[in-house]
């Protein structure tokens, strides 16, 4: 088995949105929509401020509520790497998965089906990195298999403090954010 995961170093990310643009071109994401985005989280009072910048997307959760709520099986866990995908030809556009995602990572593609990040599985299956990871000018994004203890992502998660988004929602996300320290 394998568990594909993304590990993003917030200490390096400058929030340039290259990941967002690259995703749009690679995957022909329709104008006005995005599968990934930048979130800036500011804490503190000027001038003692903390800023965390995150490149966010579908978390490809291990317990994916978008998969369990799908009435047709269109939303499914891919056999390779636990990636959560949508089979367009099975999707009826009921939007239950959109409402089920605590990250609001899904959207209705103008063609009607539910759309979201695929971890660029079409690239990954060719041995390429996801488009967002491959373009990042700060090299802050890492991708690999968490089941492999020797993988870069496994090692980073062992050696650096990190967090996921909304762990309290209980979805077991697979996008991790490394923090300073």
């Amino acid at each position: 088995m394998s568990r594909l995961a993304m590990v993003i170093d917030t200490a390096l990310c400058v929030g340039c949105s290259d990941c967002v643009v690259a995703c749009k071109t690679e995957n022909n994401v329709p104008e006005g929509y995005c599968r990934d985005w930048i979130t800036e989280s500011v804490r503190g009072e000027f001038p003692t401020v903390g800023l965390e910048i995150r490149s966010e997307r579908c978390n490809h959760c291990t317990d994916a509520p978008c998969v369990s709520c799908c009435p047709t099986g269109a939303s499914h866990v891919h056999d390779f790497g636990g990636v959560v995908l949508v089979e367009h030809d099975k999707c009826i556009g009921c939007k239950a998965c959109i409402a089920a995602c605590p990250y609001d990572a899904r959207f209705g593609n103008p063609e009607g089906y539910a759309d979201k990040c695929t971890f660029c599985i079409h690239r990954v299956e060719k041995g390429l990195l996801p488009a967002c990871v491959s373009v990042c000018p700060t090299h802050c994004m890492h991708f690999g298999d968490l089941e492999d203890p020797e993988s870069e992502v496994s090692k980073l998660l062992h050696s650096r403090p990190n967090h996921t988004l909304l762990p309290e929602a209980g979805t077991k996300p697979n996008v991790y954010y490394l923090t300073k320290g």
């Binding site: 930048i38 989280s41 939007k95 959109i98 609001d104 209705g108």
Partner: peptide, 21 residues
Amino acid sequence: MLELSSNRHNPGIDPALHAWG
């Protein structure tokens, strides 16, 4: 104080979910 901003702008999702009318 937590100040959150995002450049996501998906119709029906942002600024608040509106999947169902």
